[in-house]
Amino acid sequence: MSLSVKHLLGIKELQPGDIQTIFRTADNFKQVLQRQIKKVPALRDTTIANIFFENSTRTRISFELAEKRLSADVVNFSASGSSVSKGETLIDTVHNILAMKVDMIVMRHSASGAPWFLSNHTDASIINAGDGINEHPTQALLDAFSIRERLGELKGKRIAIIGDIMHSRVALSNIYCLGKLGAEVMVAGPPTLIPKHIEKMGVKVEYDVKKALKWCEVANVLRIQLERQHKPLFSTLREYSLYYGINKQMLDDLQKEILIMHPGPINRGVELNSDVADSKQSIILNQVENGVAIRMAVIYLLSGKRELE
């Protein structure tokens, strides 16, 4: 059984069955990662290039580890210190890399839609590792996988996504992914950071974080992406933290235990207080751990889609 797609560009293109296939495969890789030898020889014949035009710590290390644990050969490329700064176009850069017999591309780019554009110009499978403010599919998959691990199947579960919804590719991918799995989704944050008409995507909208926390079983808290905000959308970070930041007191007042998630990097004291980020309700580090298994599953399943000579 394979995926219905050749590339992982966004969750939008996936079928619910694809997501379940990825989860079942990731279950197995998670088991592999708990062994003494955390490695399988499945992709010995595959070379993967990680092309990052934007900064990244977690995603990049996670992809690289996933590739190495599948026994693939890996080349890394980051835009700074490359020919991109000499004026080479994206297609030329990628064609040059593919000319060196690379089978698969993992790409992060600041332009929304860049992986779609690229997929029209190359035969290699492309995995989107985040494009602008559009999608970050592997993050959404690992988020849903982490919830499934704690609470079981996602159908009917209530998940609140809190923070900068407007500039977050994690939010968009999560809305698609949770929707396809049958979960109920709410977005919460200041009105200036929630896109207009987002309720058309089938999500609830809430401007009061306390009400959102009361409603949900899982809160996925997002970072304020100051680097993408080109005009002021709230007065100060301190004010944002005062009205939308989550602290331990708020969780204790709920009289139920909700899970706290965050895709990282955390701005401690802004969207999450340290006493929440480090509490036992937080599954932030489990998310990171599951990221490797999910990415192994995606790479493994897509590796069968390439053209064989």
């Binding site: 059984m1 394979s2 079942r24 495969t25 197995n28 399988v40 499945a42 992709l43 595959t46 069968g304």
Partner: peptide, 23 residues
């Protein structure tokens, strides 16, 4: 023991990717 990831025909032409059973 599941052997899916150790097969020698993982990337044979026309072969679907197998979803493993549990180990």
């Amino acid at each position: 023991l599941d052997i899916t990831f150790y097969r020698d025909d993982v990337h044979q032409a026309g072969q679907e990717m197998n979803v493993p059973s549990s180990t």
